[in-house]
Design a protein around this nucleic acid. Sequence first.
DNA 1: CCAAAAGTGTTACACATACACCCATGC
DNA 2: GCATGGGTGTATGTGTAACACTTTTGG
Lengths: 225, 225
Amino acid sequence: MTVDLVILTVRQDRLRVLLIERGNQPYLGRPALPGGFVRHGETLDETALRELSEETGLDGRKLHLEQLHVYSDPDRDPRGRVVTVAYLALGPDMPLPVAGTDATAARWEPISSALTDGMSLAFDHAAILRDGLERARSQLEHTTVAAAFCPEPFTVGDLRHIYEAVWGFKLDPSNFRRKVTRTAGFLEPTGERRFPETGRPANLYRRGPASLLIPPLLRSGEVSS
Amino acid sequence: MTVDLVILTVRQDRLRVLLIERGNQPYLGRPALPGGFVRHGETLDETALRELSEETGLDGRKLHLEQLHVYSDPDRDPRGRVVTVAYLALGPDMPLPVAGTDATAARWEPISSALTDGMSLAFDHAAILRDGLERARSQLEHTTVAAAFCPEPFTVGDLRHIYEAVWGFKLDPSNFRRKVTRTAGFLEPTGERRFPETGRPANLYRRGPASLLIPPLLRSGEVSS
DNA sequence: CCAAAAGTGTTACACATACACCCATGC
DNA sequence: GCATGGGTGTATGTGTAACACTTTTGG
């Protein structure tokens, strides 16, 4: 029994997933999601946190982490019966991960290229990644997890860039602002401002206590450009 | 590794869960969710379908079945390490189940009493049941699964009774009708009508091909009485 | 006729969209 | 001044909530 991690972040306005290059058989040298076997006496959450730090050097306490789905096809691993529990992790742009125990390389791969046919991820990881991406997109509609992608403090524009990167289309800045600022508990003003290279300074915020978005922020509001 | 099932139905206008009485140690004689061990070479979906028929005599192909969550606390089973994958099953009012291999009794228990302290379900099944109930309530908002509770053909009133039983409050009949009939692909008219003991006859419908409810049918619309 | 459930119409309101417009800063 | 993003205002449309009302049956 294993845990595999779909770790997403936004870097340079692109949604990216953390991939490792496999250092062992099977699928030696092929890109894959980080993951590993559950140890005796560990909960799955503990396994996920441990793999996160072992394979990527990331601190799981700063990330949003949730169970995604279990993949149990008897033929999914050529070594034999391996059931895997996939986790979805969302976090702010993080320092480049270091190669870990059974990974010879790790990188932040843009989602678009990670899902092309040419990439051919190990095992059924392409399917797991697709499911994780769809879950992340859906979570942005109904919860405030998008803020987990932003290093604090952040501006409304930062948050909008997250939505645009994850959903893959532009949003209307003024309507977006209204929606997030009117949802009580989503954003907490710090009172500070950030001065960009050019343009009016923006108010800075921290994540608020709310976790659900009621009413939801629907993806249907796609806008040109 | 096991699969446990939260099987819900609506019977006599009450939401009910299928509970068995345990025939083995541990928790001998205590009420529990049906479930059992995953066999070699089986996917989890197959295990869920097999347990469904073995323990309850129900045909899983007529039910809506989905993965719920994995429960992995090392102490959740006194026999040792048992990770369980919970499934949620929703179906129409079904023939009384027959007692199966490791169950000495099975019954449709109203949700309200199944979750009282006095019931004290085996293992962590009370927590699993609570999670399943919340998932079912949420699914009714965003998908058309409510129709899975209705034997075909059914009326708009039948469907409304499902929502009322699962959510635990009354809905406005006229507004409900508008919402479900205007969602393309939710209901397919059969052209037939049903004549109640008293009152105007109602049009009959079958489930349509749609599975998502856009826009969602929100729970916030609670109404008095 | 009455009771009961099905089904329609209507008004008021909340919210979203689209877009015009103003604000504050660096250059 | 100008460019650039931040931020506000507003008209129009869409869907919901609340509830009055009509329809169709059995008794």
